[in-house]
Nucleic acid binder design. Structure first.
Length: 919
RNA sequence: GCGGGCGUGUUGAAAUUGGUAGACAAGCAAGACUUAGGAUCUUGUGCCCCGUGCGUGUGGGUUCGAGUCCCACCGCCCGCACCA
């Protein structure tokens, strides 16, 4: 019998599906393990060979954990709302649901061929009403909650109302956005509309005005993580800053917990670092400066991390969008300021970032330095951001490079505050040195001066300690069609939740998917988009809404009464292993953690961190091939000879190339213009050039997993993707080595079959065979736990080489179990040929017996091919003579010493003895 | 600019975490069996002045011992980027 992978793989995939082999149900008799892949957005292009990398790694882990006796939850589904399907719908008029449906079907087909052990009964799409009912439900919970800064948790809004009735706005310390101040009496006197407006400043899902990323080309706002370098991540359109009223999620309230939680989860340092930067904690102080515009005087608060430098403040700067700008613009500066604001507004986000040019305008007002009493001018400049701190800063040009550049440009004074700092060419930003020109701070080191300055400021009532976070609230509405509708309607202008029992609020049909002519979102086209006779919200939720709690839904996907039942949640708890790309570091992975913590606060889930361990799989890049056409001819020169000619590099379809050798006939047939091509060969072959590039159609370097499954089988694909290198590492796809992996599987097959003879026998294994087997067991266990799959595959190859010709059941049976996570189809087939009726999935991972691999106490014996050293583990109190005697007497070491004399014995602390031998 | 990571044969990569550098593959070369092979099986394969020499980006250091730890430099990748 031959190794017919096509037949074998089809057979077992059908078997697993029909027997529901991988179905997972809560079972208190077994420990649980939850392995999750970041579910894909089903794009029209289908899967390429890079997508399954992480899925294969997680599948191996799932299958391994099952063998280890765990009850494994390993689900899959689709992140199905999103822009590409909608853009396609706008162009073609096709309902996005239809394209999504087609793409999902194609993804499923491709996934199925690779033999994943998903529990497909738990599959869902985020665009299913049964699913997005719970996205809407969570939104309503956020709408109906506020964040208590004292208890550090979300609480129902009714409790806030009760507090207001007792003590007005001063009764609570709550996360809010510029909430007004009022007494209990005032609160009680408020109208319904006024109360609703006040509460809107406290809700965790709230409507508020803020500076947002507006993308005119897409006709929608975008969240910060959806903007890259001033362009939209999807489509690459320019993005502008604009003040708008939008739905937002109060993620900022959770900043501290999002940061602190990172210490308790097992993620890579780089990813934690990215999240830390994104959250951007900075400790400093708020300080109040009196500002004066003519006769008008105000208290203006600024934020600084360098309270120690307050004696060097020579001017103040406001962000152009700051609400202080109109208040502090003096009548004679109105025109200049207006012109400047106009100029700033016209710039795209990109231009603001890229153009590092220093710009600004004097407001005409002055501020009083609270420590020195000096009067300093107030300027307006785009280098100050409206969204961070208070949107206003004190400028210390001597010790801040941005302030320095500004002072130089506009010729403002620079006062050095640190002894020996030379500020003639650039600012001195380092937080070190001895203070001077700073009144009571003189003589202190900067590190002492910062707290001393804040203490002083607090004692004199002109400021207080403050921690600022860079993370902003997430803009939650999109002016788009293909997303979850908001379960909110406007009753007499008051945003009112659609009752929970009316969910899901399903997406209405519309005839065109574009925004309306008047610039309203597409849902404005829907007929009768009302609830209870009142208009419904017309924007929809963003892509990350549906992916923020999907891991919870997998625990209990068909529950109509809850996102997840308490029982299912208590059993599965959180994701033990999450595998996906780094690109979600500051998007999905922040939002999910926020969302989960919110549900945790309200008692809907029992764990406050959703993903215990996270592995980032690297990207698989394409490996493109090139041919070199001599300029103005139809002659192609082989890569090794091309330097002698002037050539053009042309991408050639990698399917026409094998091991960088061009199939000339296929190339001629590829495109008409190449039919008459001539070739300059080296050694009778045409050698192609190559380069690592992104895998894409236009570079003719896309490798499709179906193709690999056709040519080599899914087991080879799985093994090969793991063999390529560490899972976390990005690497180019290169089929060069795939034959080696395929050969390995054929060797495994030949341990069972010699043509039509089944070789397996019941002979007892030799110690050498047992040693090979147990070495492999130890290695596989250790490597899988550390996600080092490439070395496991190598260990298999070594074991198979060592076990060549061995067809003993006692060896082969455990070997198949070990192989089954990696190459499940061939393992399952041979397992059944050994007479087992049940799936290999239910077998137990072979027990490791160290007796077969023990090397005694000789840690690093030398094989004596020229080398003359080895190390033994002996007490360090021994002298050289004793060591020699011990080494000669010892069964293991004696054979290494042989007839040599020991020339040198080096005793190292820690019972290590290094023995040097001499002939 | 700030932060994180990396640098090992012709190539992908190993190295039990401070202890035989280059495992295992790929490629290449030679051979065997074959009408044939992109099948299968042997064997060889870091470098050179072949000493018993030199080798893990470069230079120094710690150590009996360094790819691994420390310092400086060079080069590459990723993330953030006017966050006061």
């Amino acid at each position: 019998m031959d190794y017919n992978f096509i037949e074998i793989e089809r057979k077992w995939q059908e078997y697993w599906a029909s027997h529901k082999t991988f179905r997972a149900e809560p079972d208190s008799s077994k420990p649980k393990y939850y392995v999750l892949d970041m579910f894909p957005y089903p794009s029209g292009a289908g899967l390429h060979v890079g997508h399954p990398l992480g899925y294969i790694a997680s599948d191996i882990f799932s299958r391994y954990k099952r063998l280890k006796g765990f009850n494994v939850l390993h689900p899959m589904g689709y992140d199905a709302f999103g822009l590409p399907a909608e853009q396609y719908a706008i162009q073609t008029g096709q309902h996005p649901e239809k394209t999504t449906h087609q793409n999902v079907a194609r993804y499923r087909q491709q996934l199925d061929r690779i033999g994943f052990s998903y529990d497909w009964d738990r599959e869902f799409r985020t665009c299913d009403p049964d699913y997005y009912k719970w996205t809407q439900w969570a939104f309503l919970k956020m709408f109906g909650s506020w964040y208590d800064n004292v208890l550090q948790k979300a609480r129902p809004i009714e409790e806030l109302v009760a507090a207001f009735e007792k003590g007005g706005s001063a009764a609570v310390d709550a996360a809010n956005n510029d909430a007004p101040v009022f007494t209990a009496e005032q609160w009680k006197a408020f109208s319904e509309k006024e109360k609703s407006d006040v509460l809107m400043h406290y809700r965790i899902a709230y409507q508020g005005e803020s500076t947002v990323n507006w993308c005119p080309a897409l006709g929608t706002v975008l969240a910060n993580d959806e903007v890259k370098d001033g362009y939209s991540e999807r489509g690459g359109h320019p993005v502008f800053q604009k003040k708008m009223v939008q739905w937002q999620l109060r993620v900022s309230a959770y900043a501290g917990r999002l940061l602190e939680g990172l210490d308790r989860i097992d993620w890579t340092d780089s990813l934690k670092e990215m999240q830390k930067n994104w959250i951007g904690k900075s400790q400093g102080a708020e300080m109040v400066f009196k500002v004066r515009n003519g006769e008008e005087e105000y208290d203006m608060t600024i934020f600084t991390t360098r309270a120690d430098t307050v004696f060097g403040v020579t001017f103040m700067v406001l962000a152009p969008e700051s609400e202080w700008v109109p208040k502090l613009t003096s009548p004679d500066r109105k025109e200049a300021v207006a012109a400047y604001l106009d100029q700033v507004k016209k710039k795209t986000e990109r231009e603001r970032i890229a153009g590092k040019a220093v710009t600004g305008v004097f407001s005409g007002s002055y501020a009083i330095n609270p420590l020195t009493g000096d009067s300093v001018p107030v300027w307006i400049s785009e280098y100050v951001l409206a969204g961070y701190g208070t949107g206003a800063i004190m400028a210390v040009p001597a010790h801040d490079s941005r302030d320095y550049a500004f002072a130089r440009k506009f010729d403002l004074p620079i006062i050095p505050l640190i002894e020996g700092a030379d500020v003639s060419e650039e600012s001195f930003d380092a937080k070190e040195g001895i203070m001077m020109n700073s009144g009571f701070l003189n003589g202190l080191d900067v590190k002492e001066a910062i707290p001393a300055a804040i203490d002083y400021v607090e004692a004199h009532g002109i400021g207080r300690r403050k921690i600022n976070y860079r993370i902003r609230d997430a803009i939650f509405s999109r002016q788009r069609y293909w997303g979850e509708p908001f379960p909110i309607y406007y009753k007499d202008g008051i945003a009112t939740p659609v009752p929970e029992d009316k969910l899901p609020l399903t997406l209405p049909e519309i005839d065109e998917y574009k925004p309306t002519e008047t610039g309203e979102p597409p849902l404005a086209r829907a007929k009768n988009w009302t609830f209870d006779g009142f208009p419904l919200e017309k924007s929809t939720m963003p892509g990350f809404a549906g992916s923020s709690a999907y891991y919870l839904r997998y625990m209990d996907p068909h529950n109509d009464n809850a996102l997840v039942s308490p029982e299912a949640d208590e059993y599965w708890r959180s994701v033990d292993l999450y595998i996906g790309g780094t690109e979600h570091a500051t998007g999905h992975l922040i939002y999910s953690r926020f969302w989960n913590k919110f549900l945790y606060d309200l008692g809907y889930v029992c764990e406050d961190e959703p993903f215990r361990k996270l592995i980032n799989q690297g990207m698989i890049q394409g490996r493109s091939n090139f041919v070199y056409r001599i300029v103005n001819t139809n002659t192609f020169v082989s890569a090794g000879l091309k330097d002698g000619y002037e050539t053009t590099e042309i991408h050639v379809d990698i399917n026409l190339v094998r091991n960088d050798r061009l199939d000339i006939e296929a190339f001629k047939a590829w495109r008409p213009e190449f039919a008459t091509a001539e070739f300059i060969l080296e050694n009778g072959e045409y050698v192609c050039g190559w380069a690592v590039e992104k895998m894409s159609k236009s570079m003719y370097n896309v490798v499709n997993p179906d193709q690999v499954c056709d040519d080599y089988g899914a087991d080879t694909l799985r093994l090969y993707e793991m063999f390529l290198g560490p899972v976390e590492q990005s690497k180019p796809w290169d089929t060069k080595g795939i034959d080696g992996v395929n050969r390995f599987l054929k060797k495994v097959w030949r341990m069972f079959w010699d043509r039509d003879t089944f070789l397996v026998n019941d002979e007892a294994p030799t110690p050498a065979e047992l040693k090979s087997l147990h070495k492999l067991i130890a290695k596989e266990q250790d490597d899988i736990e550390h996600f080092s799959y490439n070395t496991t595959v190598s260990a298999f190859m070594i074991a198979i080489n060592e076990l060549q010709g061995c067809s003993k059941r006692a060896i082969l049976e455990p070997l198949l179990i070990l192989l089954s996570p990696f190459a499940p189809h061939i393992a399952e087939e041979l397992w059944h040929q050994l007479g087992h009726a049940d799936s290999i999935t239910y077998a137990a991972f072979p027990a490791y017996n160290p007796a077969y691999t023990a090397e005694d106490n000789v840690k690093y014996p030398v094989s004596f091919n020229g080398k003359t050293r080895f190390m033994v583990d002996l007490p360090k109190s021994m002298g050289p003579a004793e060591v020699e005697a011990a080494v000669r007497a010892h069964e293991m070491t004696a054979k290494y010493v042989g007839d040599m004399t020991i020339s040198k014995v080096i005793v190292v602390p820690g019972r290590i003895v290094n023995v040097v031998l001499k002939k």
